[in-house]
Design a protein around this nucleic acid. Structure first.
Length: 404
RNA sequence: GGGGAGAUGGCAGAGUGGUCAAUUGCACCAGACUGUAAAUCUGGCGGCGGAAGCCUUCGGUGGUUCAAAUCCAUCUCUCCCCA
C-alpha cells in the first residue's frame, strides 16, 4: 500500500493550471519511482523575501506547491534571504535598497505567515539559501560561474531585451540564476516550481544539477496572473494586485474591478473549482448565456472565502452592492472630529486625510465629487457647522463620518 | 585607454535660452453612462491662493544671463563605437 495516490490521479492534479512541464514525460517516471521507493519528491519553490506582501498572483504557484503537499510530496520553500540582500536581478531598472540580514529574516517570516494561508505549514520544509550561499568562497563562486557562458545567459529573455535596448545589466545579475540553481543542487530538488518568467532560472538549475551529477530537476511553470488592470502581470509595483491579507471588502471590490476577460483565468488559477464547473463558466462567457457581472460576483465570493470566510464574503458582497449598486453608504466608516467647528470644507478634507492637499480637495469639489449627507458641495469656501454627525463623501468610495 | 551619446514629473518619452509647471501615451483621480470599481466618453492630474499671482520641480553642485529643463564648468550614473 503506497502512501501516494495513483500516478494518474497525481498527474491530473499536477497538470492543472500549469503552463509547462519540462520535460513532459519525466513526470510519470518520477512519480512512479517515488511510489516504488516510497520516497516523496522534493519539490522546491524559491521566494524573494525583499517584498513580503503576497498577492493572489503569488498564490498561483503557492497553490501548485500545495497540490504537491496534498499528494504526499515534500514541499521545500526556499527563502532567498541571501539573494535578497544583494538586490534584485529582474529589477526592471532601479537598484533596490540593500536590506540588512534582520530585515530579510523578518520579511521571510512575514512571507511564511502569509503563505501559510495556502500551504500546509506542518509538513513544509523551510530553508534559507544564505545557509549555503553565504559561506561560499570567492574561489567557489568563480568555479560556479564557470559552469555557464555569457551567450547562454543572454538567452534569457529579460537579459536579451535589456541588452538590445541598451539598458544596463550588471555582472552580478548573471550570478543570480546560478545562485538559484545552486539551491537546487543543494536540496537535490526533484521538481522546481516557478512562474513562467522564472523558466530560464529553473532551467539553469537543471544544467547545474547535471554538472553536479544529479538527476536534473523537473521544471514546472505556472502562468503569470494578470493584474486587476487586465494588462500587466500582477505586481505590487504596478499597483494592480489583490493582496491575500487584504480585508474582505477590498478583496471583493478589487476582484469586481478586473476586466471581464480575466474572469475565466482567475477562476482557473486562483480558485479550487473543479474542471466541469470551469468549463461551464467558460461556456457561459463565450456564448453570452451568463452575465459576466454575475460570474464575477461569484469569483469575488470564492476568492474572499478562500482567504477569509464564507460569511465574510457574503458581507463583502452586501457592502459592495450597497455601495455601488444602490449607491448607499457603507455601515462602517471612519469617524473624524474636526479640530474646529465650524470648519472649512477644504481643511476638513485635508486634515482628516481624505485627500493629500487642498489643491486636490478643491479639484474634487470643482468636479462635483464631494457630498455632505448626499448633497453636492459646489462652493470651495463652504464652511461646515456641525451640530450633529454628518457623512462626507468624496468620489464613489471615500466616506467619512464627521462628528461634533 | 580613446571617441561619441544621454540622465526630464509614478512609468514611457517630447522639449534644447523667455510664450514651460513643462506636448503626448500609460497609470491614477473625478464626472457621465452602464451590467460592476468592466467597456466607452468627458474633465483633472506639484503646492499655496477665490482669482490675479506666487513658491518648489527637469541627475548633484557651482556659474553665465534681466531670464535656464534648455548655455558653461564640475561631479555622479548609464549607453554606444574603437582598442
Amino acid at each position: 500500500m503506497s502512501k501516494f495516490p495513483p500516478v494518474n490521479e497525481q498527474i491530473d492534479l499536477i497538470r492543472r493550471g500549469v503552463d509547462e512541464i519540462i520535460p513532459e514525460d519525466d513526470l510519470v517516471i518520477r512519480l512512479e519511482k517515488s511510489i516504488l521507493s516510497g520516497k516523496p519528491l522534493i519539490v522546491k519553490l524559491g521566494c524573494d523575501p525583499s517584498r513580503p506582501d503576497l498577492h493572489i498572483g503569488h498564490a498561483v504557484v503557492l497553490r501548485k506547491l500545495r497540490h504537491f503537499q496534498d499528494i504526499g510530496h515534500q514541499a521545500v520553500l526556499v527563502i532567498g534571504d541571501f539573494t535578497a540582500m544583494i538586490g534584485d536581478p529582474s529589477g526592471r531598472n532601479k537598484t533596490r535598497p540593500q536590506l540588512t540580514i534582520e530585515e530579510v529574516r523578518g520579511n521571510g517570516k512575514t512571507y511564511v505567515d502569509q503563505a501559510s494561508a495556502i500551504l500546509n505549514i506542518k509538513t513544509l520544509r523551510i530553508v534559507y539559501n544564505s545557509t549555503w550561499l553565504s559561506v561560499m568562497s570567492f574561489q567557489e563562486v568563480i568555479k560556479l560561474a564557470s559552469h555557464y557562458t555569457v551567450a547562454r545567459m543572454l538567452e534569457r529573455d529579460d537579459f536579451e531585451k535589456r541588452y538590445k535596448n541598451n539598458t544596463p545589466i550588471s555582472i552580478h545579475e548573471f550570478l543570480y540564476p546560478l545562485a538559484q540553481a545552486m539551491d537546487s543542487v543543494q536540496l537535490r530538488a526533484d521538481v522546481e516550481l516557478g512562474g513562467t518568467d522564472q523558466k530560464f532560472n529553473l532551467l539553469v538549475g537543471r544544467d547545474l544539477q547535471r554538472d553536479y551529477d544529479q538527476n536534473p530537476q523537473l521544471v514546472i511553470t505556472t502562468p503569470l496572473l494578470e493584474g486587476t488592470d487586465g494588462v500587466k502581470k500582477m505586481s505590487k509595483s504596478y499597483d494592480n494586485y489583490i493582496g491575500i491579507t487584504e480585508n474582505p471588502n477590498d478583496m471583493y471590490g478589487k476582484t469586481m474591478s478586473v476586466p471581464d476577460h480575466l474572469i475565466a483565468p482567475y477562476f482557473e488559477c486562483v480558485t479550487d473549482i473543479n474542471q466541469e464547473e470551469l468549463e461551464e463558466i467558460k461556456m457561459q462567457l463565450s456564448d453570452k448565456s451568463g452575465n459576466p457581472r454575475d460570474l464575477k460576483r461569484k469569483l469575488a465570493r470564492v476568492i474572499v472565502s478562500l482567504y477569509h470566510t464564507k460569511e465574510a464574503a457574503i458581507e463583502a458582497e452586501k457592502y459592495f452592492d450597497q455601495l455601488f449598486i444602490h449607491k448607499g453608504i457603507p455601515d462602517e466608516i471612519d469617524t473624524y472630529k474636526p479640530s474646529s467647528n465650524p470648519v472649512q470644507i477644504l481643511n476638513l478634507m485635508v486634515d482628516s486625510g481624505l485627500v493629500t492637499s487642498k489643491r486636490e480637495a478643491r479639484r474634487l469639489i470643482e468636479q462635483g465629487a464631494v457630498k455632505i449627507n448626499g448633497e453636492k458641495i459646489t462652493d470651495i469656501n463652504f464652511e461646515l457647522l456641525i451640530d450633529q454627525e454628518v457623512v462626507l463623501k468624496v468620489g464613489k468610495r471615500r466616506f467619512l463620518k464627521v462628528i461634533v
